[in-house]
Nucleic acid binder design. Structure first.
Lengths: 131, 131
DNA sequence: CTAGTTGCAAAGAGTTTGCATGGCG
DNA sequence: CGCCATGCAAACTCTTTGCAACTAG
């Protein structure tokens, strides 16, 4: 299935790239890109995820998925920092998650394909607001 | 808000305890406990989660939440092993996630409250089926 | 008795899909 | 042109809520 170079797809990728440090919900994306219909947003996100251009994660206590631009194999080992105050989700690369995978493979004979770590807490900005 | 010792709540907790090594969806629970109405399942899971008796996580690509009996502070540092073949979610305790938290706190000034790690892959049983 | 809990059915939120139209190559 | 992508609205799935009847303490 070839992927067309549509205007919609370009807009979406541009938008995601310019927010590469954050994970966004389809709703938020759709809100910021009113030119694109909701269904097109979903269909493109799904296609881009298949192609590996976009990563998706779920968040506890919410039934919505968060999408994020994926530069190369950045998806493999990175952490999600989810702020429980402002709701934004940031990213951080680390090698420590790889170590975890090794441990699991050895201890539980579980063949890890990909991992996902979300740390819930308060981000720097919100901490400063000393609520 | 006091928590009553209802028949429903007991059934639910018993069920969760006897499946302590797995995370289950509300749907699955409701299916296995037809005596309890769906809304009661949800309301009790929410109440038990508030009390810390139950943990909840989300899974990528699905909009449903997975619930699991939480023995004490087991929630704090454990991994989820989610099999992409059979869909079951297992658990494993480790201290390595705690190290991650330390790193993040230091590097990003992110105040971690609780973490959630899901490793997606193939479980031992499914590997044996060499599909 | 009083406040928390239940079941049912209806409402919500987020996501997916069918179908006719429009656009890329 | 042919096939993929789009928009719209309807369908779906999981979860939440309103309400009257019920039950634990």
């Amino acid at each position: 299935m070839p992927v067309y170079q549509t205007q919609t797809r370009k807009l979406l990728l541009d938008y995601l790239q310019s927010h590469a440090d954050e994970s966004l919900s389809a709703g938020k994306i759709s809100e910021d890109l009113p030119q694109i219909s909701v269904s097109a947003v979903y269909r493109n996100l799904a296609a881009l995820e298949r192609d590996g251009a976009v990563c998706a994660v779920s968040r506890t206590g919410s039934r919505e998925r968060l999408y994020r631009f994926a530069a190369a194999e950045q998806c493999k080992s990175h952490l999600h920092l989810s702020c429980t105050k402002c709701g934004r989700t940031f990213h951080m690369n680390t090698e420590q998650t790889e170590d975890l995978v090794q441990t699991v493979a050895a201890q539980d004979r579980f063949m890890v394909d990909r991992s996902e770590t979300v740390l819930y807490g308060i981000c720097e900005a919100c901490q400063k607001k000393h609520v």
